[in-house]
Design a protein around this nucleic acid. Structure first.
Lengths: 261, 261
DNA sequence: CGCCATTTGTACGTATGTATT
DNA sequence: CAATACATACGTACAAATGGC
């Protein structure tokens, strides 16, 4: 586990050479993989990494920070460095910034976001209904009740309940990835939406009614009703977004387009 | 645009203080947002950021590096720092590492990945068919022909054609996000799959036939046939994965579970 | 071609805050 | 409280890459 590359006189230009920082990052990843470490396991301290990899602290630190962004490692100051939880936090942060950056096109991003969430939940409707246990249904009902109580005076609590609701919906799925993605998109929406003007306030009463309809269909095992309820739930959100976007476009002729993957 | 926080004698412990690096990163993001910069626009040099933000170069650099991972900024050595393309590269890298990390559970991740891709393409089947122009259908045919020519002797070329095929499928969609996501998952699969043992080699002939069936259904505007073709295309991949996973599980009793978002 | 200014990359030293023991 | 270990932050110096002259 040593990088060691002092002698690099000329070396072919083709295939851009990776920076030391990148090599260090790769080395740390390899260390985790080779030692079969699990999230939470401790990693060598920065000083140890310096000697082990033959690089200075600066390079080590920068490499560790890049891995921390991806949640591949987690640093606790004064504590040490550990294997990260591999969450989708980077996706959330990246998408959130993208949403904030697109000047007049914010609404398109949000609209796409909501569309993906709906796509996921509708596409998995059957499996969601099959996996929901009675206790889950009860928990969903409880969450809706809680939303009802908080109502408009506790926006944060209302949002938290909404998030928990959708988390509960997909929690039992054997495909953990879609569950995480769905929630990640919810998080992005929650971050971006407050920064935008022109979005009419959320309709709490309507949202609560929608959620009740969703639970009702789920309890009845009615897949079609479930899908209908989801559509009814997301439709007004998308309508508001497209409306806001339309008014923006009349004021602002056009926007630039998006990058590729 | 100045952070300035020398006087911090006691300060309430609640709400863990953000590190300087994070403050700098936020400041850079704000700079981009406030100035309405677009991807490719130049950012101040590190030295300028030092004076502007009143932080040392080390902190500036670490902050810039974290933003570079998210593709919010792009650093060109000897050139300067620029606004990034906001791609999903971080998602790809993170998911790829997760796939490589899960010791015996690799196949679950891949299986979930393929499932999401299928979910997206099937859920958007109608809209895909509606948006595909004749030139797109021709291009798809050409890609399949190319795959046929390359066959087994050019694995990389074959894979590239496969990627282009699926990119072409979703390219016309108005929802650019799902298109990017779909391709990002393809990339993750391409990175992780080669590192795994026990996956029977790809069936080139079958893949080509599947793709031809997809194009045929698309050309005919046959949504149901299109969905069927997609299912037939992804089914063997998922079957191979679940098989490999099953054999792994018999040899290896159980595995740990996954983290949350 | 070499030279030079600009900019990022790497290295090292030092001081400070923080958590564990 | 002290000692220890660690991460955070700063400053400086030099190396390497890029582009223009």
């Amino acid at each position: 586990m040593n990088v060691s590359r002092p002698p690099r006189p000329q070396e072919f230009r083709t295939a851009a050479r990776p920076s030391l920082r990148q090599e260090v990052a790769e080395a740390i990843k390899s260390y985790i993989l080779d030692n079969r470490l699990k999230p939470g396991d401790p990693l060598p301290s920065e000083a140890e990494l310096c000697t082990a990899l033959g690089a200075s602290r600066s390079s080590i630190r920068e490499a560790v920070k890049t891995l921390a962004v991806l949640d591949i490692v987690e640093v606790r100051r004064g504590h040490g460095t550990y294997v990260g939880r591999l969450s989708l936090s980077a996706l959330v942060e990246g998408l959130a910034f993208r949403g904030l950056l697109e000047p007049k096109d914010d609404f398109r991003i949000l609209s796409e976001l909501v569309e993906v969430r709906e796509l996921i939940e509708r596409g998995l409707a059957e499996r969601i209904l099959a996996t929901l246990a009675p206790e889950d249904l009860d928990a969903l009902d409880t969450l809706v009740d809680e939303m009802d109580q908080r109502g408009a005076h506790d926006g944060d609590g209302f949002a938290a309940c909404d998030r928990s609701f959708h988390e509960r919906l997909v929690r039992r799925l054997d495909n953990k990835l879609v569950a995480q993605l769905s929630l990640a998109f919810w998080d992005v929406y929650a971050i971006v939406a407050p920064h935008l003007e022109g979005i009419s306030a959320e309709d709490e009463a309507g949202t609560i009614a929608d959620h009740r309809a969703i639970v009702r269909a789920a309890r009845a095992g009615d897949t079609e009703g479930f899908v209908r309820a989801l559509r009814d739930h997301y439709a007004p959100v998308r309508r508001r977004l497209t409306e806001a976007r339309a008014t923006m476009e009349t004021a602002q002729p056009a926007g630039t387009d998006t990058p590729s993957t």
